[in-house]
């Protein structure tokens, strides 16, 4: 009985094999015909492929062209003004009075740097702790609620941050600390919130990139989880976290509209955190629409200084990230 069944199956299998063989032979012939026939046409499609690759390449080079063009045009327009005013008078001059032909942007450089330091003081600890929470402590369900919130924070336009700062934080600072409320403190707070998403998402990625064995080793040696996170995981993720902070610095220095609405914009070096400040970015944005001649060019000069700041930060991050991946 069983032998008979097996023989039947074998016969069916053989039949199937034969049919497949015939089909494969036929298929092969068809493929050969197809391959042999268009041999002459191959060249055209080769040219087409080559052309397409060039088009893609040019699109990829677009970013390079853009960066080059931006650099060149900003410098062409800004450098002559800096030369005319004098490099030292321009960068170290503490008086900005376009009507009196005084173009010193030291107050703006100071304003940008102070505001950024303030933003870092507020944004970095909160951001890194949140990143640790997301990467290590949070149950998946909670993390899945917090992460979209962080993304949303990144999606809010800067002008809305500025508006919120104007109607909520400025009066709050004024009530609590006195003064007008338009201050270095207010600007720092808003900037600190604005750089949170950058710092959180990049630090979290850096923490997650650390091999699990590091932490497990520490745990095996009897360290508590939190202790392992802070003494093993964080040092191992250091370069990624530093890169996140530098990117945050870049965002804070470059932010314009939010700062303009809350900082008071007086071109004077602030004496305390409750004094108003004017940053390099707001200096450009505030006066660009009515500036002419040397004043106009001096604003581009401000752009040059800002650009140099950003490019230095950029190079530093690039090398940090590279050193990180090289390991």
């Amino acid at each position: 009985m069983r032998v008979g069944k097996l023989q039947m199956q074998l016969a069916a299998l053989n039949d199937f094999k034969d049919r497949m063989l015939i089909r494969m032979i036929l298929e092969n012939e068809r493929i050969e015909q197809r391959v042999l026939k268009p041999m002459k046409k191959m060249k055209w499609s080769d040219i087409f492929e080559w052309l397409i690759e060039r088009v893609f390449f040019i699109c990829a080079m677009f970013a390079v062209f853009s960066v080059a063009a931006i650099t060149i045009f900003i410098f062409i327009k800004g450098l002559p003004a800096i030369r005319e005013i004098g490099v030292l008078n321009f960068t170290l001059g503490s008086k900005w009075k376009p009507s009196a032909n005084l173009f010193g942007i030291l107050p703006m450089i100071a304003g940008s740097i102070f505001a950024t330091i303030g933003a870092i003081a507020i944004g970095v600890p909160v951001g890194i702790f949140t990143a640790v929470f997301l990467a290590e402590v949070a149950p998946p369900k909670v993390a899945n609620l917090v992460r979209p919130a962080v993304e949303l924070l990144a999606g809010i336009p800067s002008v809305l941050y500025g508006f919120f700062g104007l109607v909520v934080i400025v009066p709050l600072v004024s009530d609590v600390f006195g003064g007008a409320g338009y201050s270095l403190l207010t600007a720092s707070f808003i900037l600190g919130v604005m750089i949170l998403p950058t710092i959180i998402s990049l630090s979290e990625a850096a923490l997650r990139a650390v091999p699990n064995e590091y932490k497990e080793g520490a745990l095996a040696l009897g360290s508590s989880h939190i202790n392992a996170v802070f003494t093993v995981l964080m040092p191992a993720a250091k370069s990624g976290i530093v890169a996140a902070i530098i990117l945050g610095v870049g965002r804070a220095i470059g932010e314009t509209m939010a700062v303009m609405l809350v900082a008071g914009n007086t071109p004077r070096i602030p004496g305390s955190i409750l004094d108003p400040i004017r940053t390099m970015t707001t200096n450009i944005a505030m006066e660009m629409n009515y500036a002419v001649d040397l004043h106009f060019d001096a604003l581009f000069g401000t752009g040059v200084v800002l650009f140099v700041f950003i490019m230095i930060l950029n190079l530093v991050t690039y090398f940090f990230v590279h050193r990180n991946t090289a390991k």
Partner: peptide
């Protein structure tokens, strides 16, 4: 290309504004 793309992402919007203006 990668460096340029990253740089482009880091340039502040006001600088893009200056470039577009000129």
């Amino acid at each position: 290309i990668r460096f340029a793309t990253e740089s482009l992402g880091a340039i502040p919007s006001i600088v893009f504004g200056l470039f577009g203006l000129i």
